[in-house]
Nucleic acid binder design. Structure first.
Lengths: 181, 181
DNA sequence: GTCACCTATATGACAAGTCCTCTATTCGGC
DNA sequence: GCCGAATAGAGGACTTGTCATATAGGTGAC
């Protein structure tokens, strides 16, 4: 599991409430690691139980209390161990390919429709990623910040998504062309 | 869930035992939909309970009984409904990107190592997919079979994996190059 | 004025997937 | 003769992730 490590990673940057975490994840890692709110809170519970984070309740006026989670030494050690562990390939499930594998049953017209729908989605995804990437880059430029390693890697995850979206788009296009023969 | 539909898909080709299913899936869809043996049997159980497949026990000599599962009309209807339903984008989780997002902590050397390990895996995956694709194509050519729509689509799923493996490889390469600045 | 949304957390029920173990027999290799 | 692989199935325990719902005050829109 990796939500655990994603959470530790965020807490290594700054202490946060579950709510903060959710928002940060939403706007940074959601495109390759979507996180459910319930799951985040549960994970924080486990981390606290394991002594990888500590919890401080901060009362607020008008708003519900914040339960701020800070990473411990043990938590940092766990995070670094994971980061230092060997990279292993995890095959990602692609429902779309399951569909494609069998959709021939419904005839070539449906196949073409399915591929066009897929192409639309790939295009849209690419557009969204491009936009967020450009926005991030402009924000960095406007602030006059030097791009440090961390920032570069975070931008690289966007580039990764973009590369795959484009690969998917090209592939659908090629297949569509092949099917017109 | 899609294992259900993958199973229905296979049973739409021919009746099968759970064992057969496992083997067929292993050598055809495993690269985009890895299926656990226990999961397959459980899914078959659900499908039978829902009347989407029927089960016939076939005694065998020397070997355990086969429990052959055949798709019903209702099962075919369910499969076709799913195939005809709108395609929707399912974001796939990429543990590697979570790692990359935070590995900057450990310094640029570890980052480079991580990327090289990833590149190796992408290369290996590409090689495997290329090999199976070529083998399938040669088998088809040797048998002198005309490539029907179904066959083409099945080869296309291999091409898809290949396209993404190459995209991943290119991306790691680009990023490595960028990090030497 | 009320309706929806934001802040903030939590839980229960469920679905899906992974891992491990177990049962039984046959066949081939060394 | 033993070991392991192939054939065939099943179940328990556990982890992950999803969905829905609840509480509860504050803010802005129309």
């Amino acid at each position: 599991m990796s939500l655990k490590h994603a959470v530790l990673g965020f807490l290594s940057i700054a202490p946060m409430s579950g709510y903060d975490l959710r928002k940060h994840m939403e706007e940074s890692v959601a495109h390759f690691w979507p996180a459910d709110q319930a799951q985040i809170y549960r994970t924080l519970g486990h981390l606290a139980a394991d002594g990888l984070v500590t919890v401080t309740t901060i009362p607020q006026e008008g708003k519900p209390d914040r339960r701020e989670h800070a990473i411990t030494e043990a938590g940092l050690a766990e995070l670094d161990d994971w980061l230092a562990s060997p990279v292993e390939y995890v095959p990602s499930r692609e429902v779309f390919l399951v569909r494609l594998f069998f959709v021939g049953r419904l005839g070539v017209d449906r196949v073409r429709d399915v591929l066009r729908e897929r192409a639309d989605e790939a295009r849209e995804l690419a557009a969204v990623l491009e936009q967020t990437r450009d926005a991030s880059e402009q924000a960095v430029a406007a602030a006059g910040i030097t791009l440090d390693l961390e920032m570069r890697l975070r931008l690289a995850t966007l580039a990764n998504g973009l590369a795959h979206a484009r690969a998917e788009l090209d592939w659908t296009q090629d297949l569509l062309a092949e099917l017109t023969d």
